[in-house]
């Protein structure tokens, strides 16, 4: 299996790239990468489905808003992401729109907390669609 994501050196924050054969997959892997800073994502049981909708004036803003949504869901409902399905990204008249189904669980003591993510930043943000459909995105989160 190809690498879903990898982390890079950053003095204080966490910087990662997420890969995919299309933009949808790269975005989904970015959400998993971010969650991996807080929990062991492999151990999260996919018991709950959540409809996710995000918008952005461009793809970078869409990525920031999409990832921020998981911080919101974590802080307000204790939702932890395991995986994303049915993810679509559509170009709108102004900007982009993403829709997806997030599968995961509500936090309980059985899940070990690895850390916290404060916010998704625009620092060193990249959204790249390479030829042959290979995509990658880069994000720095404040932790």
């Amino acid at each position: 299996m190809n690498k879903q994501y990898e982390f890079f050196d950053h003095t204080a924050d966490a910087k990662f790239r997420a890969y995919g054969k299309n933009l949808q997959e790269a975005f989904a892997n970015a959400a998993i990468a971010m969650t991996s800073l807080m929990f062991d994502t492999e151990k999260i049981e996919p018991r709950i489905n959540k409809a996710i909708e995000s918008e952005g004036t461009d793809l970078k803003a869409l990525l920031v808003n999409f990832l921020s949504e998981f911080l919101y869901l974590h802080d307000t409902e204790g939702f932890i992401l395991r995986k994303l399905t049915s993810i679509t990204i559509n170009k709108q008249r102004e900007g982009y729109r993403l829709a997806a189904i997030a599968k995961g669980d509500t936090y309980s003591e059985k899940y070990e907390i690895l850390g916290d993510v404060k916010a998704v930043t625009y620092n060193e943000i990249e959204v790249r669609e390479e030829e042959k459909g290979n995509c990658w995105v880069q994000i720095v989160v404040d932790i």
Binding site: F7, F8, D9, H10, T11, D13, A14, I143
Partner: peptide, 8 residues
Amino acid sequence: GRAMSRAA
């Protein structure tokens, strides 16, 4: 002030 990345 941090001198080393968290990953490192």
